[in-house]
């Protein structure tokens, strides 16, 4: 269906089709899944395990001070984090901070900033879906 519709329309359609019975997080994951299918035809679902690897892996492409997501968010997603300028960050695990990932614009804004910071590039939609799946499973 989405191949035929223009992408914005498609996103709207996806939201409409799922929002009747799902929350904003599920909607966001569905959106990512739809986009992932378009990006990679062989896409077969997100993986929390890959998300965990992404969260803890030390990358070389970003800033030396922040080689991994864990530099600010901590090794344990259920624990609080801290930025390098000393500001506390609430836990990224959805079970600990229930209001997380309910505002898609906020999620996108921080994926964009933090992926550039850590990987030196924006995250792919597969990476975003994997990471989000990991945090929703925590």
């Amino acid at each position: 269906m989405c191949r035929k519709l223009a992408i914005p329309l498609c996103i709207v359609a996806t939201i409409l089709s799922t929002s009747l019975f799902a929350g904003p997080r599920e909607d966001l994951l569905t959106q990512y899944a739809t986009a992932a299918k378009t990006e990679t035809p062989t896409f077969s679902g997100f993986s929390a395990a890959r998300g965990k690897t992404l969260h803890t892996h030390k990358f070389a492409g970003g800033k030396p001070d922040t080689p991994a997501c864990t530099a600010c968010h901590g090794e344990n997603p259920r624990g609080a984090g801290r930025t390098l300028t000393g500001k506390d960050i609430e836990a990224v695990a959805a079970s600990v901070t229930p209001k997380r990932y309910t505002d898609p614009a906020k999620v996108e804004k921080w994926f964009k900033r933090n992926c550039k910071e850590v990987l030196g590039r924006e995250c792919t939609v597969l990476e975003k879906g994997d990471w989000l799946s990991y945090m929703l499973s925590q």
Partner: peptide
């Protein structure tokens, strides 16, 4: 360092 944020 395994657990960077041990609040206590």
């Amino acid at each position: 360092m395994n657990i960077p944020y041990r609040p206590l």
